[in-house]
Amino acid sequence: MILTLPLLFFTGTFSPGHLPPPLLVSSANMRLDITEAVEAEISNFDTLFETWVATYRAAEDDAGREAALENRPTADDAVKNLFGLVETEPAGDGAFKALTWIMRAYTSEGMSPSAQALSLLAEHHIESEQLKDVAMNLSRGSAEMVPGLLTIAEKSPHHDVQGCATLSAGIILGKDPLTRERGVKLLEKVIADYSDVTHYDGRLELGKKATGELYVMRNLQIGMTVPEIEAEDVDGVAFKLSDYRGKVILLDFWGDW
């Protein structure tokens, strides 16, 4: 079996001990600084996870790996502790770090901590430009993420962030036939208002992405008649997909790489 390990958990540093340091009170403004406690919490989980990965890698056969998978640590405790810290100072940098970490964490409770984290980000960090990444990464998210995305789309002062949040919400809603019409409206809004926005160093253009998603929703759903393709083959001879009507066709978008 192929297992993709979430490498993002390895980014933290090793902590000297397993107890988070006490909360530090900054003398300048007497605000609680939770950053250090957040980092310690994340680092503790990284250590735990890294130990488990070593066990997994040491397994000699599939049975051993299956057994190791059963013992994969979940981030439930870390997520709970981080939410506790965030509550004390939800608008600070430490909280931002904690919330974005929670959104990526593997927990046994499915996606709900992520949705909760997203709504806290929308409430307390709406000014952040980094919400662009947060929003874009959610284009494959679940329906639970839609309310948070719509809040961000509506309230963020940044055009880029609004566009990415609208796009992700549109893609998610468009996947489900029951909410497809709402998804279509949002994607049309992306094309109308956010076609100028790009992401990933220009490799993703929001208008083009939305156009592609709309095309899939309107033309490439199961039960629809396949659109015609008319082009040259590899040898330069023109042909049409409909030349093969009457046969079952496996249409394969491929490349030799």
Partner: peptide, 8 residues
């Protein structure tokens, strides 16, 4: 009646 058609 079966064909594989690629898009390369």
């Amino acid at each position: 009646p079966f064909a594989i058609i690629g898009v390369n």
